[in-house]
Design a protein around this nucleic acid. Structure first.
Lengths: 196, 196
DNA sequence: CAATTGGCATACGTTGCGTATGTGAATAGG
DNA sequence: CCTATTCACATACGCAACGTATGCCAATTG
């Protein structure tokens, strides 16, 4: 039996990531005690250090997992939409919607950058931006978007606006009403990219 | 003599804020040992707890100080500029320039939000956004900016894009070239706010 | 079947935070 | 001018969390 061994290891890693993800997403990275959340997974810090080196390493693993999920969801929505521009806009709004989830907001937009630095430099967590950059490039080739514009730069700026958008909605007293305002303002900004 | 007493207290506060600001701005909030940076100011944690309650309280004080400085610099640049729209754009680019400083980036855009939460909810640190909101409101009244747009919401989104802009420039291999690209893309986004 | 690898736990030392308590100097009152 | 009180700040203590060093047992390899 070769499988059980490998499977147990993979399961341990998965359990640690899941427990950490929950802890980081609720009480936050700094407040999450390694003793506590490893215990909640039926393990100890020994397993954590063995697999991830340190607390930061585990955070990286959690972020990689979330990033993959986000990219999958964005690509899913990507399929339908009449025009490519509409497709691009939908992609952005989907991104904002996802960022509304407290777990994603906390890990990807607050604690992540504070602990690991500029998200643009993260190794395994740029799928969403990459996708947006792709679309912008193609829209440029089609003449929909102004030519003198670096696609990745634009994608990063839009990402920044998106995360603020989500935060504003999430912290609002009336999320519904605020959401309409925020998305409207966001789309207005995107209009600036179009050629006339 | 009533002054010496009051002055000593104010000096102590100032020394703590300065020492903390330097530590937070260089090694970061989490890594900054209260014992270390209070000692570097010739004091102990006793003084810190007396004046600021805890480490977070001191961070708030540091942030309030930086915010005031940033607002002052923005308002300074604000004076000249032919049109109000140009004035607004200059304000934004000045903001981006300021955010290039490692200390500001680290404290205001990375550690600050992680420790204290959404900057929009900070008590004494919204002078810049308030100023931008003001200008947007007036530009709307003048018909330069599209009418159906919440000014504060727009200001927040722009802030998000600005901070990303600064980070991209700061982490670039060729800051000069990148800066041109980033500012161009940023201005392009702002174009979207104008009425046609 | 013996040897070895490695996944994970246990044990220890260190560091940093928060609180409770102490002290000396400046102020206020008589 | 002398005493009492306040208050700015230091010292001392306990606790929690991290990182490392070490140990153990099961699974693999030959």
């Amino acid at each position: 039996m070769h499988r059980p061994r490998k499977e147990m290891i993979a399961e341990t890693r998965a359990k640690l990531i899941a427990a950490a993800r929950h802890a980081f997403g609720t009480i936050g990275y700094a407040e999450a005690s390694m003793d506590d959340f490893t215990a909640s997974a039926g393990l100890t810090r020994g397993a954590l250090y063995h697999h991830f080196g340190d607390k930061k390493g585990l955070l990286q693993a959690v972020i990689a997992e979330i990033d993959a999920e986000m990219a999958a969801r964005v690509n899913e929505v990507a399929a339908r939409a009449p025009t490519r521009w509409q497709h691009f806009v939908d992609e952005c709004t989907t991104y904002i919607e996802m960022a509304l989830e407290p777990e994603i907001q906390r890990i990807m937009f607050r604690d992540g950058p504070a602990v690991l630095g500029d998200p643009a430099q993260w190794p395994n967590a740029n799928a969403c931006t990459a996708s947006m950059t792709d679309h912008l490039t193609k829209l440029q080739e089609e003449g929909v978007v102004v030519p003198d514009l670096d696609p990745e730069t634009a994608a990063r700026l839009i990402n920044g606006a998106s995360s603020q958008a989500s935060q504003r909605i999430a912290n609002s007293d009336e999320p519904e009403a605020t959401s309409k305002q925020v998305v409207a303002a966001f789309k207005q900004l995107l209009e600036g990219l179009k050629s006339k």
